[in-house]
């Protein structure tokens, strides 16, 4: 019986597609299958994939924004660095110039003071030397006068003192 049926089915000239007796079976299982696939998709797969895609695009957008922000920050930092560098340089130059000026002024003051002191000392010394010289000249005159008077008094007791002094002065000049 079974083999006969198989033979009949195998040798039937028509297409199995047009065997209407199998239609209810196929349609029933097709509807079941489509409903099951639809439920799997709409309850599990599609929300999951949609959320993953949304999350990914969100992550990418955030990362890009963060990168842009960091880039801006880097540029800002570089500018600040350059500015700080320039400021520091200017400051250093200013300090150097100030120090130089200060040292120069101190040096000038010190030099002037020293010059003044030296000048004062020199003047004093000159004065002292002049005094000494004057004293010395006077002493020499006195000593010469006294010596001459003594010599003259001893050799020529009648000779006047005034003549001797004049003679001594004339000799000292000569």
């Amino acid at each position: 019986m079974a083999t006969e049926a198989t033979d009949a089915a195998a040798s039937s000239p028509g297409m199995p597609q047009l065997d209407f007796s199998t239609f209810p079976n196929q349609i029933f299982w097709l509807v079941v299958t489509l409903v099951v696939i639809y439920l799997i998709l709409s309850k599990v797969a599609l929300p999951r994939i949609a959320s993953v895609l949304a999350e990914r695009s969100g992550t990418i957008t955030n990362d890009l924004a963060a990168a842009e922000e960091l880039k801006l920050k880097a540029v800002e930092a570089e500018e600040a660095y350059n500015k700080a560098l320039a400021d520091a340089r200017a400051e250093a130059q200013k300090i150097v110039a100030e120090a130089k000026a200060e040292i120069q002024s101190e040096l000038d003051v010190a030099t002037a003071k020293a010059d003044a002191e030296i000048a004062a000392k020199a003047a004093e010394s000159e004065k002292a030397i002049a005094e000494i010289r004057e004293n010395a000249m006077q002493s020499v005159t006195e000593v010469a006068n006294e010596t001459a008077e003594a010599l003259v008094g001893t050799l020529l007791p009648q000779a006047a003192g005034a003549d001797v002094k004049a003679a001594v002065a004339a000799r000292l000049k000569g």
Partner: peptide
């Protein structure tokens, strides 16, 4: 089951 069994709409077939 057998090849010649009747195919009802609920029969589990190779389609299923």
């Amino acid at each position: 089951g057998e090849a010649g069994d009747p195919i009802h709409f609920y029969t589990i077939t190779n389609v299923t």
